[in-house]
């Protein structure tokens, strides 16, 4: 009966959160990496996830990207509780992740990296013996990048290992945005980049936001956060200590939450 009421509410698209975490906890050998974390992400949100090292940001992102499941609590996608592990299942639910270490195959071109694990192919029978449709993959990747106004020279011929960190990050985000139907997780997208390259990446995040893409971005850089996010969630020692609209708060206040000066 109770379930029925919940489904009725969930059926109403205007009030249902795109993704909802309901009292999620994660234990690693008796240690609470996450404790009773709950929040909602609505369509179009661009949320900055901050916190000191070990606050649980990475654990949270890995849980949403399907690397591991919660010890207790549930994750609801458009009102329905879902299992997101393994990562391929999270992807089926429209959740894409841009990992900090990029997860690009360095000897592949940008175009080839776009379709890693999701190759387009001809033929029937076992998937491994099907023939790749290289032309279709290359042209799709090229037009997806063009669509986002990203210019990467030699994207069809140069392996990504011979590109700059900025170009690689742009390619990785563009790939995530291309496949993401619900949520794009960005794990420290500007961490390893210079000033100009960080600016380009944030520019891209803003452009994706303007298209209505929902994003959750882990960052240590509050200025970067403020330039793109409309909301900020602060983690401390595995707990969510603040969830604020960036317009209603200040960097000083967020820093106070991060350090524990305020709680």
């Amino acid at each position: 009966m109770q379930d029925d009421t919940i489904t009725t509410i969930a059926g109403d698209t205007t009030t249902t959160a795109l993704v909802r975490l309901d009292r999620v906890s994660k234990l690693f050998g008796g240690v609470h990496a996450l404790e009773d974390v709950s929040f909602e992400l609505s369509k179009g949100d661009v949320v900055g996830l901050v916190g000191d090292n070990g606050a649980g940001k990475s654990t949270l992102v890995k849980m949403l990207s399907g690397v591991f499941g919660p010890t207790s609590g549930s994750i609801l996608i458009e009102g329905e509780p879902q299992t997101l592990t393994p990562p391929a299942r999270a992807q089926k639910h429209g959740i894409e992740t841009v990992y900090q270490d990029l997860a690009l195959v360095s000897s592949f071109t940008v175009a080839e990296n776009f379709f890693v694990g999701r190759e387009r192919s001809w033929g029937r029978g076992p998937r491994l013996f099907q023939i790749m449709n290289r032309r279709s993959m290359t042209s799709t990747a090229a037009s997806a990048l063009e669509d986002l106004n990203i210019t990467i020279p030699h994207l069809k011929s140069r392996p990504v290992e011979r590109m700059s960190g900025g170009q690689r990050q742009m390619a990785a985000i563009a790939r995530g945005a291309f496949w993401s139907e619900r949520l794009l997780l960005l794990d420290e997208p500007t961490a390893a980049l210079g000033v100009r390259e960080s600016h380009e990446v944030l520019e891209l995040v803003r452009a994706l936001s303007a298209r209505g893409l929902t994003m959750l971005m882990v960052t240590h850089n509050l200025e970067h956060l403020w330039s793109v996010c409309n909301r900020v969630i602060v983690m401390r020692r595995g707990k969510k200590v603040a969830d604020l609209r960036s317009a209603d708060t200040t960097m000083d206040e967020v820093v106070a939450y991060i350090t524990g000066a305020k709680s």
């Binding site: 270490d101 997860a103 690009l104 195959v105 360095s106």
Partner: peptide
């Protein structure tokens, strides 16, 4: 080339 990326990609 990148076993971790391959694993994540399913």
């Amino acid at each position: 080339g990148n076993p971790e990326a391959a694993r994540i990609a399913g």
